[in-house]
Write a protein that binds this DNA or RNA. Sequence first.
RNA 1: GAGGAUAUAGCGCACCUGGUAGCGCGUCAGAUUGUGGCUCUGAAGGUAGUGGGUUCGAGCCCCACUAUCCUCC
Length: 376
Amino acid sequence: MFELLKTSGNARRGRLTTVHGVIESPFFMNVATSAAIKGGISALDLADVKCPVMLCNTYHLHIRPSDELIRQMGGLHAFTKWQKPLLTDSGGFQVFSLAKLRRIKEEGVYFSSHVDGKKIFMGPEESMQIQSNLGSTIAMSFDECVESPAPYDYVKQSTERTTRWLLRCKTALDKLNASETTLNKNQLLFGINQGGIFKDLRISHMHEIAELDLPGYAIGGLAVGEPTETMYEVLDYIAPEMPVHKPRYLMGVGTPSNLIEAVARGIDMFDCVMPSRNARHGTVYTWQGVTHITNEKYKTDDRPIDTECDCPVCRNFSLAYLRHLFKAQEFLSGRLAVLHNLYFYNTLMERIRGAIEADDFPQFRAKYSLLLGQKR
RNA sequence: GAGGAUAUAGCGCACCUGGUAGCGCGUCAGAUUGUGGCUCUGAAGGUAGUGGGUUCGAGCCCCACUAUCCUCC
């Protein structure tokens, strides 16, 4: 159940209630692809970085260790010891971005595993079965994420197929949720809007999937190569077409600036590999902009990453120490930088929520939207 | 003590029959958007161990010295 608590312009402050707990929105989901946040972070660390939702990947977990195994171990919550809400991706995006030799048919996608080349078939029913086995709080529908740019005719054909796949997803998950042996009988299905950067396809697709009255809706197929301004234009016209009383999830986005700008356009949920991937490569976020830990200027810098940050890393370690860890390729470098970046992202969302509540969001946006994208 | 080999960027190497030096790693800087612990882009950095000779011209050919390595006694 989603409650819309307050708005500020198009920005929304809401609350999503699930069987695994209540989530205050807007929020950012922390990506744990293979049931672990890369960088050596376990579910036990996530409270320290104020993580509201963990996101795991259907595609990866299906291949290894397999969803059947995870189900046998009691589902993802029991397996990972994460007790709060958990979202699973559908596998759609990975099939299109990682898998080799894929063939898209009406029934689904045939592809080879990126791990061992094994031939795999995944369609809407398979994706739902896998996510049901994983027992996540929120399951995402199986879609095709079309790369950008793509020709209009192909996007149209693909989007229509994604609609048909969504119907099959709903039928399949309803059936699974009704089964006595299902781990999470309250598993929620979110639909995904596609349509590339074509306004008429985006809007007609949104209207079609909204008719299913699903518990939430996502916008897919953005931040896949198009200019940032184009992504904002799509949000400008698609968000008003989305159900008001359902959470809106912009998939795979983005930079701190992207999050602020998307919230300003009415988005409630995000996920992105950026804070964790960049952290592992030495790029960290601060309230004065992004910076590279490995820069020589930090060689003897005794200050924390961000003097305004009170994360466990900034309370204890200096830039000089972190730079050393990166140069020495110590495993700890990634772990500490990831903890900081996740704390930063989750705190950013917390401050956005606070700003909307305090009727201060326009000022917050004006102050930070540009600043957070700049180099410190 | 004798014989042989090598000396070129911080490190490891290349430059074919002599025409004023390239590569990898590292360093420095920048990318990175539903994560294959990646990947990509750009920059700085050497006048070739030292001295001399041959030549219009030497990293390359010759001599001496120095250093290092290998083998033998």
